[in-house]
């Protein structure tokens, strides 16, 4: 049943002109960023992917567009996973927020924002969550040096 569902989903997405392929046990879909909200809605409402697993981004400094924003969804009914991937440029790294669809996205988008500098249009609460106020830069970007500290407390002599 579950393979069936994924096959139907794949056919549907290919009809819409997306690249969709099976890889390591899940369906990986490449979409343009304009289609993100619609595709997520389709997954949630049309195919029962109700559990939002994850959003993160991958930095490819030598590539244009520079970032891949990656989403994972899980269906608690059919026990299958889908990965959505969309590419954004380094100059305008912004995608639509998924918070209205999935509450779980709120924290993860905050994390992705501070770690990689991805903007989420429509999410107005992008305060730092793992880092702190006043931290400059995005540590998971490849151009952030691993050992560059930004201490809050002045060190003892």
């Amino acid at each position: 049943m579950s393979a069936d569902l994924l096959e139907r989903l794949r056919a549907r997405l290919v009809d819409e002109g997306r690249e969709a392929a099976f890889a390591h046990g899940l369906l990986a879909v490449q979409i343009p960023r304009e289609a993100l909200l619609d595709t997520a809605k389709l997954l949630k409402e049309g195919f029962g992917f109700d559990l939002f697993l994850d959003v993160t981004a991958v930095d490819w400094p030598d590539r244009d567009p520079r970032f891949d924003v990656v989403y994972h969804f899980y269906s608690t009914r059919d026990h299958v996973r889908v990965r959505l991937k969309t590419a954004v440029t380094g100059t305008d790294p912004v995608v639509d927020t998924l918070v209205p669809l999935f509450g779980a996205a709120a924290y993860m988008e905050r994390e992705c924002h501070e770690m990689l500098g991805i903007g989420f249009r429509g999410n107005d609460d992008l305060r730092p969550i793992l880092l702190y106020e006043g931290f400059e830069g995005h540590p998971l970007r490849k151009d952030y040096p691993k050992e560059r500290e930004q201490p809050l407390v002045r060190y003892r002599e």
Binding site: A23, H24, G25, L26, A28, L53, D54, T56, V58, V70, H72, Y74, R81, R83
Partner: peptide, 20 residues
């Protein structure tokens, strides 16, 4: 080269590793 997402049922819930 490639990417993978694997999840195990950890004590707290779904522990997934997304590797690129």
């Amino acid at each position: 080269a490639g990417e993978v997402y694997r999840a195990h049922e950890a004590a707290n819930g779904e522990l997934g590793f997304y590797l690129v």
